[in-house]
């Protein structure tokens, strides 16, 4: 019954894939740009979170409550809680809340500023140009973002606080012990909520309708009075915010490191598998790849995991060129 353990692990990492994928799909839907550098935006988000949640609170002039907020009741609670119990994990987490919020806010703001800059100065001048130009600009961004990262941050694989308490649960599933880490579970829930909310928002809110209109036809949307540049900016902001959160979650799980950038390519593969313009398809693909990776790890070992999404996307592209639920672009002759 080890299978169940791996299945659960797979679903949990699949949810994070889905969270990252939001950014790529949102930008594609509104601007028709596939952002090859999204992984590197996530990496920058993770490093920003690391800076403001770990490095900044350690500065001598930073307020002391930032590095550890410990009122009486937390200390009491912690002393009374049993070692390794969920309560203990909860009381361990409380003192980190200020720096988590502080780090997350600045990560989102920082990523947002970068995204707006990219949208305004690199993408908007290419409006109406070929798809190729836009892809190449995001390819150039890969190098630029990764260069800036190494310019500012030299530290490698540092650890950062989890966004949520991280107790380890041990469940019995027909006699097999199954371990679940609270933070992974919570990230899955956070990812699912954000994903669900954004899909709901696109369907119901007027801003969402504007995004969908732009994705159908930019010039018609423009002539109908939709502020297309603002829609573009919104899409990039959504990508930046979800990317920053995903970056923080990933950084807490795997540690901050430059390899977070490569993570973006797996997600790109997932997005193509699901179908570039279909949130539902992408969600399914994310979960499938998450599970696939877990199964590969179980059967073939850890090293094979890194190519699992790439092999999967090649297979899907050959069988179903536009992904599981994507719509092919019809060319009129």
């Amino acid at each position: 019954m080890q299978f169940v353990q791996f299945l659960i692990n797979g679903l949990m990492s699949g949810a994070i894939y889905a969270l990252i994928a939001i950014g790529i799909v949102a930008v594609y839907k509104s601007t028709r740009v596939v952002n090859f550098a999204h992984g590197y935006m996530i990496m920058i988000g993770a490093y920003l979170y690391y800076t403001f949640a770990v490095l900044f609170p350690e500065l001598s002039w930073a307020p002391s409550w930032l590095s550890g907020w410990a009122p009486e009741w937390v200390i009491d609670g912690k002393n009374n809680a049993k070692m390794f119990s969920p309560e203990a994990a909860f009381y361990d987490w409380i003192p980190d809340i200020p720096r988590i919020i502080f780090g997350l806010i600045f990560a989102i703001i920082g990523s947002g500023i970068i995204a707006l800059f990219i949208e305004r100065f690199l993408m908007r001048p290419l409006l109406g140009q070929s798809n190729f130009s836009m892809i190449m600009v995001t390819v150039g961004l890969i190098s630029v973002l990764s260069g800036f990262k190494s310019l500012f941050w030299t530290g490698d694989a540092a650890s950062v606080p989890h966004l949520t308490p991280n107790p380890a649960f041990r469940l019995d599933f027909f006699g097999t012990p199954i371990f679940i880490f609270g933070a992974n579970l919570m990230s899955m829930i956070i990812a699912a909520i954000i994903f669900g909310y954004i899909v709901y928002w696109l369907r119901k809110s007027s801003a969402g309708v504007a995004i969908r209109a732009v994705s159908e036809d930019q010039s018609t949307a423009y002539s109908m009075g939709i502020n297309v540049p603002r829609v573009f900016a919104q899409a990039w902001l959504i990508a930046a915010a979800t990317g920053a959160i995903a970056g923080a979650v990933l950084a807490a799980r795997d540690g901050v490191s430059p390899s977070l950038g490569l993570f973006g390519f797996s997600v790109l593969a997932i997005v193509l598998m699901g179908g570039l313009d279909s949130f539902v398809g992408v969600f399914i693909a994310a979960m499938l790849v998450g599970v696939l990776e877990a199964l590969v790890q179980w059967q073939l070992g850890g090293t094979w995991v890194e190519i699992a999404p790439y092999v999967a996307v090649l297979v899907v592209i050959i069988i179903k060129p536009h992904g599981l639920l994507g719509s092919p672009e019809v060319e009129r002759i």
């Binding site: 593969a269 090293t303 890194e306 790439y310 592209i317």
Partner: peptide, 29 residues
């Protein structure tokens, strides 16, 4: 082979994936 069915972005990702896979097989024990 994927180029027979897809263009542009799909092909870019397919070739990118191929690069990862080739290097993976070179590195693997």
């Amino acid at each position: 082979l994927p180029s027979l069915r897809v263009k542009g972005i799909y092909l870019a990702v397919a070739t990118l994936s191929a690069n990862f896979i080739i290097i993976f097989f070179i590195e693997i024990d």
